[in-house]
Design a protein around this nucleic acid. Structure first.
Length: 874
DNA sequence: GGTCTGGAAGTAGCC
DNA sequence: GCGGCTACTTCCAGA
């Protein structure tokens, strides 16, 4: 996809640097900017900064501001990002999951702490647990807004794994559509007890306005009862007037009414009785009779549940009557997922209807996979000893569920010969669509195509299936996202067969991995659905918040059957994807800069490639100080360090940091290119990559993030006039804080400039460099790069350095004895005040690094901000 | 006509 | 309580 590029003629007009803030440069740089859709965010910040820094550093030191009167605009095809992120969680883990029927901690997967009876189930009429009146009496008004009624069950307190709780982004898997694991348990042992009732976990939207929504919010949690066979009346858009269905306020409102309505409205609609359109097809499903449907639902007898499951099964439903096309389509679109869950016996070839939008051919192939692989493989898994369970009547998915790890488990991306890789990472931004919206298409790759996942090392001939779900961007605890769900994209533009299913209340796309395709799958069928925050947050037990929780990852899983009957499960997570709209407000992002410097007289053309260049975006050329003080940050890729070594040393007298792109001082007079726009770094994510690398996203603690925004100024790169009259070129500290749990933190370095405003230009910068290790959850010991410092040259600087030393000591206190050298150079000042690399010691991260991260990062941020606030205003 | 996509209006929540 | 700001959600329109 083309990216916006801006080429500006070399400035010929000189303006004093001091006028930079007052001079309107727009006229001379009125570029474009139909900004590209990709990577709007500061993910590419480093590239931007580095480029700009280059420009700065190679600019004239004495030239006043320059402007380009006649910018040339060109569109340059986007460069693809490499998938440097890897996106593989626990990629270095050596172990792998062998499908036990119990969790590693010994907790059976079927345990569930409660029963959640949801309004969407339509069970109320016959539900012997609750009547609406009961609910109203027992549940406060506000609570009644929930469609979930929770029955606390005794002796099941241990169900939830406390480790999965996170205040930042909680039990997504459980939240999205409720108790993930518990619901998975439902599938795992669907008939075991009321505790594992499939009727729990609501995620019921108070304003279900279309079948998709109904599906998303209700069906997911109410899979068994929310069959597409249901009366269209279940869809408020079909049989229920919006006015009745919705609360008077269509905006996010108290879900009370809506949910209450949902209680009422679905009360009847979910009964198969009320389906006006019984399928005319010969359905493989078991007919849902009064007995099966209503008779003993409260007891969750096997027959009832089986019937319910079968009721969801497969058959495309004729819902044409009275249902909008979209509704019908959506409803049918979900059929496959239902069918998947209730897929009949493996030997029953005819039982599973292709349904959905799978063509017979597609279905045939996919079914082959499912039958040939899953069934055969997973039949070897020990069966739960429940006499009423008929394995052959259980779909492979449901059957394997007991032996499959929960979606919130951390799993390695490779094990033994197998390696699950995301060959092509998704774009860093994909605007998710709400249920009230139409699809916004499939997630795309930064290269313009689609993400690609491939399983390496698999030499068998049996096809496999890769599962895809939307996970959190929290590396520390990857789990299904509470507020986002994968959305199956269909259509002529989709070439990849997919199958939608539900695991643990999380929508999962299953995509075949075919040996003939080298076990590679192009993920062009996965969109992202946004669930309303209010719907999720109001759910009982939901601790996550949706606000600003807009980053997700694509999580891929593949289950590889082993000869011993067990299954190896690998998992890989993509780079984070920003799912909010934001594009409209997105900030300019320069990804590439054609030239680093040019003569002050102008005459050259500089091409900037990036995104979100707006008409009011400006490129400002400012005078560069004779001896500028540069405040910058490193790129986070070691390659940069390698390339910025001696060969660049002549370029700067300040430092030859590991990451040359951003710390350079031009030996020759030149121009300072300063983005006259706000930084793209005003995000809680930072892309730390070279221009040619894939974006690497890092969480920034919200507090720090806010501080960065408020204190760090808006410019990513700027020039300021120091009190001594020496302009200080600085890259506003963006608090390049690498999230402690970033999956690739091992390659990230936090370089914290500690430059005093009054610091002499000859004074070397002090840097605190910290390599943030892998996620604490990672089985691989993480490393922390011991901070390295430059020798202070002034008392002021000494103070700063002392502060750094404290941090260093703090880090050291947490160091484990095991340390290993890293080839990364450490900066030191040579006799000429140049910086030369010196060995750096990398030490392993302590166990309690999790806390260390927080403390240190916060401290670093504070220090960073405090030391740079004075620099931000130009 | 439907889907995809970008933009923006309206609203809620926070400060 | 009000205004400003930001984020969220929904709606609209164009391709």
């Amino acid at each position: 996809m083309p990216r916006t590029s801006v080429s500006a003629a070399a400035p010929s007009t000189l303006l004093p640097a001091c006028l930079r803030d007052t001079v309107d440069f727009q006229p001379f740089f009125p570029f474009i900017m139909k900004a590209a859709e990709e990577e709007h965010y500061n993910y590419a910040s480093s590239s931007l900064s580095s480029n700009l820094s280059l420009g700065v550093m190679n600019s004239s030191l004495s030239t006043p501001c320059l402007q380009s009167p006649n910018p040339v605009i060109s569109i340059i095809p986007s460069t693809s990002h490499s998938s440097g992120y890897g996106g593989n969680l626990d990629s270095e883990a050596s172990g792998y999951y062998l499908s036990p029927n119990i969790r590693p901690n010994g907790t059976p997967t079927l345990e569930s702490p409660r029963i959640e009876i949801t309004s969407c189930l339509g069970m109320h009429t016959n539900n012997q647990f609750f009547h609406e009146g009961d609910i109203e009496e027992t549940i406060p008004n506000t609570k009644r807004t929930h469609s979930t009624v929770t029955l606390n069950l005794p002796n099941v307190d241990a169900y939830r794994d406390p480790s999965c709780l996170s205040p930042a982004s909680s039990l997504s898997s459980r939240s999205c559509n409720s108790e993930a694991s518990s619901f998975e348990s439902n599938y795992s042992y669907p008939y075991t007890s009321p505790q594992t009732s499939p009727w729990q976990s609501p995620c019921v939207s108070p304003k279900t306005t279309d079948p998709e929504e109904g599906y998303q919010r209700s069906m997911v949690a109410c899979t068994l009862l929310g069959s597409p066979r249901h009366s269209p009346s279940t869809s408020p858009r079909t049989s229920i007037p919006e006015e009745n269905w919705l609360t008077p306020n269509s905006r996010p409102t108290s879900p009370c009414n809506k949910r209450k309505y949902s209680l009422n409205g679905r009360q009847t609609s979910y009964s198969p009785h009320h389906s006006p359109t019984p399928s005319p097809h010969t359905s493989p499903r078991v007919s849902v009779t009064d007995e099966t449907w209503l008779g003993n639902t409260h007891q969750y007898t096997s027959s009832a549940i089986v019937a319910a499951i079968n009721a969801l099964s497969t058959e495309p439903i004729d819902m044409n009557d009275g249902i909008p096309i979209k509704s019908r389509k959506t409803a049918m679109d979900h059929s496959p997922s239902m069918s998947l869950k209730t897929e009949p016996a493996c030997e029953d070839h005819n039982a599973l209807s292709p349904g959905g939008d799978l063509s017979p051919e597609e279905y045939s192939g996919f079914h082959h996979i499912r039958k040939g692989s899953f069934c055969d493989q997973y039949l070897s898994v020990p069966q739960p000893p429940y006499p009423w369970v008929k394995p052959k009547n259980i779909s492979p998915t449901s059957y394997m569920s007991p032996s499959m790890p929960a979606l919130d488990w951390h799993l390695p991306s490779h094990s033994g010969p197998y390696d699950l890789r995301i060959e092509v990472q998704p774009k860093s931004h994909h605007r998710a669509h709400y249920e009230t919206e139409g699809s916004r298409g499939a997630v795309k790759a930064s290269t313009g195509g689609h993400p690609i996942v491939q399983l390496h090392g698999y030499l068998e001939s049996e096809p496999l299936t890769v599962q895809l779900f939307i996970g959190t961007a929290d590396d520390r605890l990857l789990r299904p996202h509470a507020f986002y769900q994968v959305h199956r994209i269909t259509g002529k533009t989709v070439s990849t067969t997919s199958h939608e299913t539900i695991i643990s209340n999380t929508k999962v796309l299953e995509i075949p991995l075919l040996p003939e395709n080298n076990m590679k799958a192009i993920i062009d069928c996965a969109g992202i659905l946004k669930l309303r925050n209010s719907d999720i947050e109001l759910r009982k037990g939901e601790t996550d918040i949706g606000r600003k929780n807009t980053r997700v990852r694509l999580v891929f899983r593949v289950h590889i059957p082993q000869a011993n009957g067990r299954t190896v499960t690998l998992q890989a997570a993509s780079n984070p994807i920003e799912c909010s709209q934001r594009s409209a407000q997105e900030l300019p992002l320069v990804e590439k800069q054609s030239i680093d410097n040019f003569p002050v007289i102008g005459g050259k053309k500089m091409i900037l490639t990036g995104h979100n260049f707006h008409q009011d975006s400006k490129v400002i050329f400012v005078e560069k100080a004779p001896v500028p003080i540069i405040k910058t940050e490193p790129a986070d890729e070691y390659e940069s360090a390698q390339t910025c070594g001696p060969m660049n040393q002549g370029l700067t007298q300040l430092s030859k940091p590991y990451y040359s792109q951003q710390i350079m001082m031009p030996p020759d007079p030149g121009l300072c290119l300063v983005p006259g726009f706000t930084s793209c770094q005003q995000r809680n994510t930072v892309m730390s990559s070279s221009p040619n690398s894939s974006p690497k996203l890092h969480d920034l603690p919200s507090s720090a993030y806010n501080k960065c925004i408020s204190n760090s100024g808006h410019t990513q790169l700027g020039i300021q006039q120091s009190t001594g009259g020496v302009p200080t070129i600085q890259e506003v500290p963006r608090s390049r804080v690498v999230h402690p749990s970033s999956p690739d933190q091992s390659s990230h370095i936090m370089l914290q400039p500690q430059v005093s405003l009054h610091q002499s230009s000859s004074c070397p910068l002090g840097y605190q460099q910290t390599v943030y290790p892998n996620s604490p959850s990672s089985p691989v010991p993480s490393i922390t790069k011991e901070p390295s410092y430059l020798q202070p040259c002034s008392p002021n600087h000494s103070a700063v350095m002392g502060q750094q030393q404290q941090q260093q000591q703090k880090v050291q206190r947490n160091e484990s004895p095991t340390s290993q050298p890293l080839s990364l150079p450490e900066l030191h000042e040579d006799s000429n005040h140049n910086l030369a690399p010196i060995p750096v010691t990398i030490k392993r991260e302590p166990e309690e690094l999790d806390q260390l991260y927080l403390d240190d990062v916060n401290e670093i941020i504070r220090n960073d901000l405090s030391s740079t606030n004075v620099h931000t205003e130009l």
